Simulated scan of single mutants.
Amino acid sequence: MTVVTWPDEVDDILGGDLTCALAYLTPAGGTVVSAVAPIGLRDRAKGTVGFTTSLGFGRKLERIKRDPRVALAYHARKHGLGDLGNQRYVLVQGTATFEVSPDSAMLEEIGERVVPFMGPPRRGRFWDSWLSAYYRDRILVTVAVHRIVVWPDLDTEGVPEVFGEPLPVGAVSSQQPPAQGAAPRVDVPKAAANAERLAHCLLGFAQADGFPAIVPVRPTGSGPEGLHLDIPAGAPAGGRRAGLLSHDYRPKLIGLESRQHTGWLESAGTTGTYAPHTSSGFAAPANKTVLLLANGFLARRGLKRAKQEGLLEALR
């Protein structure tokens, strides 16, 4: 595959955003969208970008291993390190690989890269012991870039520029509705309230070439049929499985909230109705000490579960 490179104004975003959205595919042809920490990971010479995740999110890693096509949306400059005047929306599509048991040198590099974004780590006898699982739990995911789509503004209302493989052409066929039906299965008013309240709302779906795409959307209300969305960049017309992420975050990720859904999208192009089928999420406190205590606990529980369920061997 030809190495895909990108200009300085895009590299500033890839190297500076505090968080970005990840989309990966489900076995049923749907898409899950979640927030991840890219910590400036990218290599223009090799044509790769990256992000970190945790063994505690084993299903995400299993699905990426099954189908490595992913997308990353760099959709906000807030609290990052780059130029705040650079308001481009950057969508990266590529294939992902990861090392289940990274060596100490890689973990050390990840630790150094985190500092400019999230500050120095807490040290001392207690914190070194409590957070050992958290740092050992880090997984580095590297994405070989196939395509970068760059809109001139974060609202994706302009004409995008494409680096790498051209965008797929032609209409995308609608998918078959789920066997249990396409209607909402979770609380629609609650999902709509979260989508309207949180600063960022993003929609993920599969393109004609099989790669997931992520675009920002604007909630415009709801009804028994689902959430009503404006989709500035557009989505394939018809019905399909799709993922929805609503989230917000504070400086250094000390205080963040994320709400995720999988469900069914009926799209007319730049408008659509989203029927949520599943719901998950979390809110992290805006207190670093409490956050680190929680991170240590969740990492220990995640590692224990991964060993009990044989996740490490399965991923290897």
Rank of each mutant, 00 (worst) to 15 (best):
A235T: 09
Q180P: 03
A183G: 11
F205Q: 04
L312H: 08
G310Q: 10
S279G: 06
A191S: 09
A275N: 02
I214H: 01
V290L: 12
G272S: 06
A299G: 06
S280F: 13
L315A: 11
R218G: 06
K190V: 14
F205M: 05
L244D: 02
L311M: 06
P232D: 12
P178F: 11
L198P: 01
A268C: 15
L291M: 11
I214A: 01
T273R: 07
A294Q: 15
F297K: 12
L227D: 02
G269W: 10
H247Q: 11
K190S: 10
D248Q: 12
V186L: 01
R300D: 08
H200A: 02
R301F: 13
D248G: 07
N295K: 05
K190L: 13
A192E: 09
R250I: 00
K304G: 03
Y274I: 01
L293T: 00
H261A: 05
Q175R: 07
R240W: 13
L203V: 05
S279N: 01
A191L: 01
T262Q: 15
Q175L: 09
A233H: 08
A195R: 01
V217F: 03
R197T: 09
L291R: 09
I254M: 01
L244I: 02
E257T: 15
A193S: 10
A283P: 04
T278E: 10
G272W: 02
S280H: 09
